[in-house]
Design a binder for these strands. Sequence first.
DNA 1: GCATTAATTGGTC
DNA 2: GACCAATTAATGC
Length: 236
Amino acid sequence: MRKEKAECEKCVNENCFIKKHIHNAEMKNYIEQKHTILCKKSQQFIIEGAPVHGLYFIYKGKAKIVKTGINGREQIVRLTKNGDAIGFRGFGTSKKYLIGAYAIEESILCNFSTETLMKMLQNIPEITFDLMLFYAEELNKSENNVRKIAHMSVRERVIDTLLYILRKFGQTDGYLNIELSRKEISDFAGTTEEQVIRVISSLKKDALIKAKGKQLGILKVEKLQKEILEHKYLFK
DNA sequence: GCATTAATTGGTC
DNA sequence: GACCAATTAATGC
């Protein structure tokens, strides 16, 4: 395995925090200090409870962010793709990661140490401001998620999860651009594998989605949206 | 092809 | 709606 560095200059992820501010003169010093990490499929790169090791960005690939519940059940907190930041709650107050992270497929990650990051935030106000907006947005999403799990039925939660995946990762040739196991979908929707399977086969029977092994395809987006619409507005 | 893992189905509490 | 058991499909080696 050749160790090649993911160059920010060549990076195509315009949504990345770092990339957005690459034109700032000071940035050059900081991006030189980042590390590039290659992650195999289903490899864990952040361990819950382990000491913080800075902030990660996905250069290329996909990852799931996970929190272990009381009964040992895993809850997928969010899914991430190219340009997304991971482990951003790590620096500042806490010394340990409060979440775990796994690569869903082979991924290339950029890692900035806490020290580098601190300097960056102290010296470049635009980045600090950007990060604040990002935090606010994440908090909002997180609150929506709490509401989702609290008020929606299992069927609605699974549908909502599928639509989220569609929004986030898109679909090519009729199939979603990400492969998640039924178990992973259930960890995300806050239910069990069996329930997800039942909802999926029910949706398949109604020709709202299609499934070929792990590959899922959304056929009737509008109909699915309609089914969860009520909740989207009722609990705004 | 065999062995392990994931998906599915049916049943119980 | 979760948990368990049995069967079947898929996948790795």
